[in-house]
Write a protein that binds this DNA or RNA. Structure first.
Length: 256
DNA sequence: TCATCCCTGTGG
DNA sequence: CCACAGGGATGA
């Protein structure tokens, strides 16, 4: 579910709630999740919360608590008492709590000394590295963009959306993109991510993603999930193919 | 570089 | 019932 914009919105929403606050206790409700509580030495003050690719990092004076939401996870800020269905972890603060809710149980929770993941440059940052990096891979550009070691933050929705805006066929080998196409791609990635941030992310029909405040994201994909529907630009039916095992949506006329 | 697996839920 | 799902680690 969550890609860079959803994770970034999550972090921004939680920041004023948890930064500088004391984490009193941590309750693990799912045996799949490791007992991280002793590792953190609670209670402990949250120095900061930040995003690393799609990871959410709670920074304590000596340790980091790193959460990845994977497909169906989300964090919620809650000041009530009830425990919603699929709650896997609860971070207890004096004035409220953070709930990790994850129906599919694919999300991960770990404690690290320092943040070290094999992540490429952040998708929101300077993308000038793409010129050279794309030359070295024959993988389909869509598959390349989804590999977090290449570029961090894009997922299945926004990779498809960026390629649509750039007018690039997702099946094209990365190394086949010319300078003008790469320039369009860089611009399109930033545009799509910034649009999604402004919209507070994307909430699909299943409502799996909500901000920590419980609000939906208003981003409206142009091609993702739109198989058979008319392309917003030219009206040609959107097609779906499988790339790297993931559903991939594109306009066969606008994207070449 | 690919399939397979991890899980559970939903929609056709 | 089967297909599919905003992600990623793993092993062949």
């Amino acid at each position: 579910m969550p890609e860079l914009p959803e994770v970034e919105i999550t972090v921004r929403t939680l920041r004023p709630k948890v930064e500088g606050k004391e984490l009193r206790a941590l309750r693990v409700l799912d045996p799949k999740i490791p007992q991280v509580s002793p590792l953190l030495g609670l209670p402990a003050k949250v120095d900061g919360i930040f995003r690393g690719g799609k990871h959410i990092v709670f920074a304590f004076p000596k340790k980091l608590l790193v959460i990845h939401l994977r497909m169906s996870g989300r964090l919620a800020w809650d000041e009530g008492e009830s425990v919603p269905k699929h709650t896997r972890l609860i971070l207890e603060f004096p004035h409220g709590r953070v709930l990790f809710i994850d129906p599919r149980r694919l999300g991960t929770v770990e404690v690290m000394e320092e943040f070290s993941k094999e992540l490429g440059p952040d998708a929101l940052g300077d993308l000038s590295f793409l010129e050279e990096a794309l030359r070295e891979s024959k993988a389909p550009i869509k598959v390349w963009l989804l590999d977090q070691r290449n570029i961090a933050g894009l997922g299945n929705i926004y990779a498809a959306e960026a390629l649509f805006l750039a007018g690039i066929d997702p099946r094209r080998p990365a190394s086949s993109l010319g300078p003008a196409e790469i320039a369009r791609l860089k611009q399109a990635i930033h545009q799509v991510l910034n649009e999604a941030l402004a919209a507070m992310g994307t909430t699909l029909s299943d409502n799996a993603y909500l901000t920590p405040a419980g609000e939906i994201g208003d981003y409206q994909p142009r091609v993702y999930g739109k198989e058979g529907l008319p392309c917003p630009t030219c009206g040609t039916p959107i097609e779906r193919v499988e790339l790297g095992g993931r559903g991939t949506y594109f306009c066969p006329r606008c994207q070449r």
